[in-house]
Design a protein around this nucleic acid. Sequence first.
DNA 1: AGGACGAGAGTAACCGGTTCCCCACCCCCG
DNA 2: CGGGGGTGGGGAACCGGTTACTCTCGTCCT
Lengths: 341, 341
Amino acid sequence: MGRRDGSRRSGAGVPVTIGLVAATAGVSRATVSRVFNGNPSVAPELAERVRATAAELGYAPSPVARSLALGRTGVIAMLVPDLGNPTFQGVLNGLTRAASDQGYRLLVADSQEDLDEEAVLAVEARRRCDGLVLCAPRMPTERLRELAPKLRPLVLVNRELPDADVPSVTIDFEVGIRDLVAHLRGLGHRRIAYLAGPDTSMSNQIRVRALQVAVAGTVEVVELACGVSFADGHAAADHVIDHDVTAVIAYNDLVAFGALSRLHELGVRVPAQISIVGFDDIPFARYTTPALTTASVPIGDVGPGAWSRLWALMNDGAPEADLRLRPRLEVRGSTGPAPTA
Amino acid sequence: MGRRDGSRRSGAGVPVTIGLVAATAGVSRATVSRVFNGNPSVAPELAERVRATAAELGYAPSPVARSLALGRTGVIAMLVPDLGNPTFQGVLNGLTRAASDQGYRLLVADSQEDLDEEAVLAVEARRRCDGLVLCAPRMPTERLRELAPKLRPLVLVNRELPDADVPSVTIDFEVGIRDLVAHLRGLGHRRIAYLAGPDTSMSNQIRVRALQVAVAGTVEVVELACGVSFADGHAAADHVIDHDVTAVIAYNDLVAFGALSRLHELGVRVPAQISIVGFDDIPFARYTTPALTTASVPIGDVGPGAWSRLWALMNDGAPEADLRLRPRLEVRGSTGPAPTA
DNA sequence: AGGACGAGAGTAACCGGTTCCCCACCCCCG
DNA sequence: CGGGGGTGGGGAACCGGTTACTCTCGTCCT
């Protein structure tokens, strides 16, 4: 084994283990364990003595050893592609809170958009925990499908995996896109730009398809490559004005802000000359000038929804149905009637 | 022990452990272990057979068991008070990347600003990992001081703990504040508001003291209770205009944005009527209208700095000196000459 | 041919806990 | 006074790995 000699990390003296406490208190390790687990079959005064000894030595049970013995850790993990994305913060908050209601802790890992790393990280994170919530919008379906069995209990966020028996929590992009398009069409817009997310991204693909269905030929759509961030939107705005559109649907709010900001710099008036809509309704959205019309995603429901599904899997294993959250159209100042040419 | 019967989590068959692989391949567990750790003292063709057997069974070593045996996990943790704060994202990114250079993974825990929870969470997170980076601006020094020994190897972010032998990475708020004040004074401002962060927060206390030193009686400062978020700044702006000031120093950029946005709504022109400065230089700052003058914190250096200190502690134990990062004044459009009224 | 040596693989102790099983003891009752 | 039953606590197996030590060969050298 490792460290067979007593030599620990430099500086530390004798390691304070359950064995040391037991020896010092003159009881067996079993008894110490019982005390720390609140097992009532220990005489109260003995328990007190053990607790005192432990406190004196500064003993605390090793979570690692405990996890190994118990076969459970009391921890779940969530893997996200980019912690910087405000969307995840809402999810993580909800998940942290929901899990802590059942005494579980949440640890977060960030794959930093690295696809190869992501798979390895997911497996590792999962094996250190009791369950995993995975948000991997770029991972090829193929790859995800073969990974899924190793990650169980697993819940997916923002993506589904049909016939693989993996519960998921998703956003109904179709509904959101449909409402946005209807709103713009109602305002007289007939030629709009779509600032696309990464084309490897599942949710971008879904938005694109939904867009085609929603316009149904009544509105012309110009698709422009863009991205996911403020900077991407900022850069894309220059292309937008080349394309003679009266409205812009951004991949998400961040992109919409970027575009908004750039148009402002260019002296283009929003919504008088161009209308802009986002997607998500992140907290900032109501504060931009003008405030952003967007499809408001009930992001606070994602975390709890994911937790309840994970919890079901970790216990009786009866899987709950998928949760599909519907965005609500939030009309603010960034949209207005199409200019009359 | 737990689960002495063969009954695992429902559904799973025989658990795929190193023992099963060994038995199936007809070798000892030691040999399997050697193969998976790249120990060259295994004959190549035997190693190949073991690998094949393992692959067939879908075996992967248990990180928990491994951690126990090795006495190290290959993981570090960072505990933050609020994942939603954009400042941390830069830190986490840098830390993730720096740690991965040495083959370490980063897990993130969020204390959600809960002080009691925070201490427990820190200890637990630490004991599941090999080291901890802690950002706990609200924790009383007293409490932190008694906690520190249990958290070692430990690195603090954004706060120091004198004489406790805990390395830290901090921002030199004094320099930042001094530069901001000098800038505003140079523009003729003589009465400015400070939108304060939480008064329990260390970094707010430091800012307040630095402010007193910097103005040195030459400028009047009105301190207004505010907070840390966009919404806080938005709400505080209403009080600002009651106090007849010509400039505002916000606790951070987020607060500055909030104030900026609200002033815009109220028809107050920035910087013509009021100048505003933030602190941090988060990515958004250059895109607001007007762009935000701020003390630019080299946030990308925090993560690597913390890692190199943690790494030193985890190895030879020779502690590196504290790192104190100096903000740089970034003058943009939100500041201008004081109105001559 | 005999012995030294090294390579390769097995044995078993150990990491730090948990818990099943069993034993010793005490109390109470017939 | 002997036996049944309950209670408290110890012994030891086990979780799934790692590794020091040992043992068995085969090779090469003198």
